[in-house]
Computed example of a mutant assay.
Amino acid sequence: MAENKTQPTAESVDDFINQCESPQKRGDSFVLKKMMEEITGEKAVMWGPSIIGFGTYHYKYDSGREGDFLTVGFSPRKSAISLYIIGCMHQDFDFPIEKLGKVKTGASCIYINKLSSVNQDALRELIAKGYQYMKEKYPSKI
């Protein structure tokens, strides 16, 4: 069974954020990092070369494939900031994404151009709810 390509690393999150060319994305990324650390109680960790994650969960599919992945996270991409709120992609997760304001959604991400265009209270609620959802759905075996 192949391992996930995206694995936690020992790289510095702050160094990665400081490499953002856009001052707007750099500032928004530091705000998101602080926000997600406060909400989850987890320290920011680099996952692969470009994703900042908070917490991990272990999954196992019916196919037998299993692994670990970040519980919530984000990546300051060139075109937008990708939010990885894994729980909100499940069909039984109940949160009206439109509460966030100006965002786009993909198969596994929520894309924002800048934090100032998003409802911060709704974003905090979504992060907390998504994190809690994953902790309940994939409880730690430790």
Rank of each mutant, 00 (worst) to 15 (best):
I110A: 06
E37T: 13
T71D: 08
I81G: 10
Y138M: 05
E136D: 15
Q24G: 00
P23M: 06
N119S: 09
S63E: 01
A80N: 13
F93P: 10
Y133C: 08
V118P: 06
N113S: 08
G67F: 12
V118R: 13
S117M: 11
T9A: 10
W47L: 03
E37D: 06
D68M: 07
T56R: 05
F69Q: 01
A107Y: 00
D14V: 14
F54R: 08
D15E: 15
E42Q: 13
S117W: 05
Y111Q: 14
I39S: 06
S63K: 00
D94G: 02
K114S: 14
M134R: 01
K34P: 01
G130V: 03
C88V: 08
I17Q: 04
F54E: 06
I52C: 07
K102D: 11
F16S: 08
V118Q: 09
C109E: 00
Y61F: 10
S75G: 13
L32H: 12
D62H: 03
K114Q: 15
D62N: 11
T56I: 02
S22C: 08
Y138D: 01
P23H: 03
P139K: 11
H90L: 00
Q24S: 06
I110H: 01
Q91I: 03
L115S: 07
M134V: 10
K141M: 13
G101W: 01
S75W: 09
K102L: 03
E37H: 09
Y84F: 15
N113L: 03
G55T: 03
A80C: 04
T40Y: 10
R124K: 15
E21N: 08
A128T: 03
L32C: 11
S22H: 05
Q120E: 12
H90A: 13
T56F: 00
V45I: 14
Y84L: 10
L70T: 02
N119I: 01
G130N: 12
V103F: 09
Y61N: 02
S140Q: 13
I142V: 10
Y57T: 04
Y84D: 04
I86H: 04
D28A: 08
E66I: 02
L100K: 09
G48M: 01
V31C: 02
I85N: 15
T6R: 14
T6N: 10
G55P: 04
S12D: 14
M89S: 14
S79K: 12
I51T: 12
V103K: 02
K104S: 12
T9Y: 06
A107L: 08
W47H: 06
G41D: 08
Q19R: 15
Y57I: 01
